[in-house]
Amino acid sequence: MQRILLFIYQYRAFFTFLFLELISVALYVQNNSYTGARFFNSTNRLAVAINNFTYSIRDYFALRDINRTLAEENRLLREQLQQYRQGLLYARDPVIDSVRIHQYQFTSARVISNSVGRFTNFITIDRGLNDGVEPGMAVISPEGIVGKVKVSGNRFSVVTSLLNVDVMVSARLKRTGHFGTVQWDGVDPDYIPFKYLPRHVQPVVGDSIVTTGYSGIFPEDLMIGTIAEIQLAQGAPFYTIRVKLAQDFRRLSYVQVIRNRLLPEIDSLELRVPDFNQ
């Protein structure tokens, strides 16, 4: 026993090293799971205060851009409102289910911290549990999709950016309706690869890539980007496609968080089919 203690004491530097590294690895691994890490992230009060301050300075200089985006968004919303009114006029459903009309609930949020240069990029926004923002909800901007909420504090949330190699979003070639997956490769924050488009489809440079709505997180037909480059290797089953993102992630300022009110129903239905997710 004494010799063991002596041994540990002799190599105490190494054991301290091992111990601290284990804590670090445990923290990191735990945080990568969906609900992990409540404390050591940027929803922490001090970090929020500092991030808020730096972003309030940046906000001032970005006002002109922000106003332009907001005006554009207003225009888009009015347009859609009109479309829905028209749609309602011609709705032939014998009974109109109001939940279907109000299926998606929007919350507007301001970005207070953002990055684009890392492999795993995150965005901190100024809405949290008190504002009805919960982990798993979709985040979009007027120009395109942005990411999914990862952790929510009472007043702030951390969003996993679309520019994160761990995020996959089901996407569709709008013109033909064929679906695939977008997943970032960590190279260029302006482009994202669109995978698994079968070779019998004929995509064209400039085609729009939109969301499918399959996961129930993002509503259908939200813009992701347009095709910038198409390659088809000899004998490969799928195209290699580079998509130019509609949203420039380097100037993200205001975003919308979306709650799908019907998601619990979709999830519980899919759970009743035993092999659904295989």
């Binding site: 690895v25 923290l27 990191y28």
Partner: peptide, 12 residues
Amino acid sequence: DVFYDSPGLHAM
């Protein structure tokens, strides 16, 4: 790590 949302990574 607090500012990079990567608890443990920089510590390691």
